[in-house]
Protein backbone atom coordinates (compact mmCIF):
# COMPACT_ATOMS: atom_id res chain seq x y z
CA UNK A 1 0.00 0.00 0.00
CA UNK A 2 1.23 3.50 -0.79
CA UNK A 3 2.27 5.56 2.23
CA UNK A 4 -0.15 8.33 1.18
CA UNK A 5 -3.13 5.96 1.15
CA UNK A 6 -2.14 4.65 4.54
CA UNK A 7 -1.76 8.11 6.08
CA UNK A 8 -4.95 9.43 4.50
CA UNK A 9 -6.85 6.37 5.72
CA UNK A 10 -5.38 6.88 9.18
CA UNK A 11 -6.35 10.56 9.19
CA UNK A 12 -9.84 9.74 7.94
CA UNK A 13 -10.17 7.12 10.68
CA UNK A 14 -9.06 9.60 13.32
CA UNK A 15 -11.40 12.28 11.98
CA UNK A 16 -14.29 9.82 12.01
CA UNK A 17 -13.47 8.74 15.58
CA UNK A 18 -13.26 12.41 16.60
CA UNK A 19 -16.57 13.24 14.96
CA UNK A 20 -18.31 10.21 16.47
CA UNK A 21 -16.91 10.82 19.96
CA UNK A 22 -17.61 14.54 20.02
CA UNK A 23 -20.81 14.42 18.03
CA UNK A 24 -22.53 11.26 19.05
CA UNK A 25 -21.35 10.62 22.59
CA UNK A 26 -21.75 14.22 23.68
CA UNK A 27 -24.88 15.31 25.35
CA UNK A 28 -26.59 13.39 28.07
CA UNK A 29 -27.72 9.79 27.83
CA UNK A 30 -30.87 8.60 29.61
CA UNK A 31 -28.79 7.66 32.67
CA UNK A 32 -27.07 11.04 32.68
CA UNK A 33 -30.37 12.85 32.33
CA UNK A 34 -31.79 10.83 35.21
CA UNK A 35 -28.78 11.61 37.40
CA UNK A 36 -28.92 15.31 36.54
CA UNK A 37 -32.64 15.44 37.27
CA UNK A 38 -32.10 13.65 40.59
CA UNK A 39 -29.36 16.11 41.50
CA UNK A 40 -31.54 19.05 40.60
CA UNK A 41 -34.31 17.61 42.73
CA UNK A 42 -31.80 17.26 45.60
CA UNK A 43 -30.82 20.92 45.18
CA UNK A 44 -34.47 21.96 45.24
CA UNK A 45 -35.32 19.78 48.21
CA UNK A 46 -32.44 20.85 50.45
CA UNK A 47 -32.07 24.36 49.04
CA UNK A 48 -28.43 23.78 48.14
CA UNK A 49 -26.59 26.67 46.57
CA UNK A 50 -23.09 25.39 45.80
CA UNK A 51 -21.04 22.51 44.47
CA UNK A 52 -19.02 20.58 47.06
CA UNK A 53 -15.81 21.12 45.08
CA UNK A 54 -13.84 23.20 47.56
CA UNK A 55 -14.42 21.87 51.06
CA UNK A 56 -11.09 22.99 52.49
CA UNK A 57 -12.24 26.24 54.08
CA UNK A 58 -15.60 27.50 55.27
CA UNK A 59 -15.74 30.38 52.86
CA UNK A 60 -14.64 28.35 49.83
CA UNK A 61 -17.31 25.71 50.43
CA UNK A 62 -20.09 28.10 49.47
CA UNK A 63 -18.54 30.71 47.16
CA UNK A 64 -21.95 32.09 46.25
CA UNK A 65 -22.86 32.67 49.92
CA UNK A 66 -19.53 33.85 51.31
CA UNK A 67 -19.33 37.47 52.31
CA UNK A 68 -17.42 39.86 50.14
CA UNK A 69 -14.20 40.01 52.14
CA UNK A 70 -14.17 36.46 53.39
CA UNK A 71 -10.58 35.90 52.30
CA UNK A 72 -9.49 38.34 55.00
CA UNK A 73 -11.84 37.05 57.63
CA UNK A 74 -9.32 35.68 60.11
CA UNK A 75 -8.01 39.09 61.00
CA UNK A 76 -7.66 42.36 59.11
CA UNK A 77 -4.98 42.13 56.38
CA UNK A 78 -4.75 38.34 56.82
CA UNK A 79 -3.56 37.07 53.50
CA UNK A 80 -5.43 34.28 51.81
CA UNK A 81 -3.55 31.05 52.32
CA UNK A 82 -5.84 28.27 51.08
CA UNK A 83 -4.93 27.03 47.58
CA UNK A 84 -8.54 27.35 46.48
CA UNK A 85 -8.29 31.08 47.10
CA UNK A 86 -6.27 31.32 43.92
CA UNK A 87 -8.83 29.29 41.99
CA UNK A 88 -12.05 30.85 43.20
CA UNK A 89 -12.63 34.14 41.49
CA UNK A 90 -13.62 37.35 43.20
CA UNK A 91 -17.37 37.77 42.91
CA UNK A 92 -18.34 39.48 39.71
CA UNK A 93 -20.52 42.07 41.30
CA UNK A 94 -20.66 45.76 40.62
CA UNK A 95 -18.90 47.94 43.18
CA UNK A 96 -22.15 49.27 44.55
CA UNK A 97 -24.08 46.07 44.38
CA UNK A 98 -27.31 47.43 45.79
CA UNK A 99 -27.30 50.46 43.51
CA UNK A 100 -29.69 48.94 40.94
CA UNK A 101 -32.11 48.14 43.73
CA UNK A 102 -31.97 51.52 45.42
CA UNK A 103 -34.85 53.89 45.00
CA UNK A 104 -37.06 51.39 43.23
CA UNK A 105 -39.55 51.21 46.03
CA UNK A 106 -40.32 53.50 48.89
CA UNK A 107 -41.91 51.03 51.21
CA UNK A 108 -42.31 47.31 51.63
CA UNK A 109 -45.33 45.71 50.06
Amino acid sequence: MRPSTLVLALLAGLALAFAVIFGHFSGSTATDAERLAANRALVERYGLTDLALFTEARYTRHPSQADLHSAFQDHPAALEHFPTGSLVSPRSLPLFRDAPLAGKTTSPD
Partner: peptide, 28 residues
Protein backbone atom coordinates in the same frame (compact mmCIF):
# COMPACT_ATOMS: atom_id res chain seq x y z
CA UNK B 1 -15.16 12.07 30.69
CA UNK B 2 -13.81 8.59 31.40
CA UNK B 3 -10.92 9.14 33.77
CA UNK B 4 -12.45 11.94 35.84
CA UNK B 5 -10.05 14.65 34.63
CA UNK B 6 -7.20 13.12 36.62
CA UNK B 7 -4.80 15.77 35.32
CA UNK B 8 -6.77 18.63 36.92
CA UNK B 9 -7.97 16.93 40.08
CA UNK B 10 -4.88 17.82 42.16
CA UNK B 11 -5.24 21.48 41.16
CA UNK B 12 -8.94 21.52 42.02
CA UNK B 13 -8.59 19.60 45.25
CA UNK B 14 -6.42 22.20 46.93
CA UNK B 15 -6.28 21.18 50.59
CA UNK B 16 -9.72 19.58 50.58
CA UNK B 17 -9.81 16.29 52.45
CA UNK B 18 -13.30 15.52 51.20
CA UNK B 19 -13.17 15.73 47.46
CA UNK B 20 -16.15 14.42 45.51
CA UNK B 21 -15.77 11.62 43.01
CA UNK B 22 -17.82 12.59 40.04
CA UNK B 23 -18.21 11.89 36.37
CA UNK B 24 -19.29 14.75 34.23
CA UNK B 25 -21.97 14.60 31.59
CA UNK B 26 -20.18 15.07 28.27
CA UNK B 27 -21.04 18.56 27.17
CA UNK B 28 -19.14 19.85 24.17
Amino acid sequence: FHFGAAVFAPVLKGWSVLYPRFTLVPAV
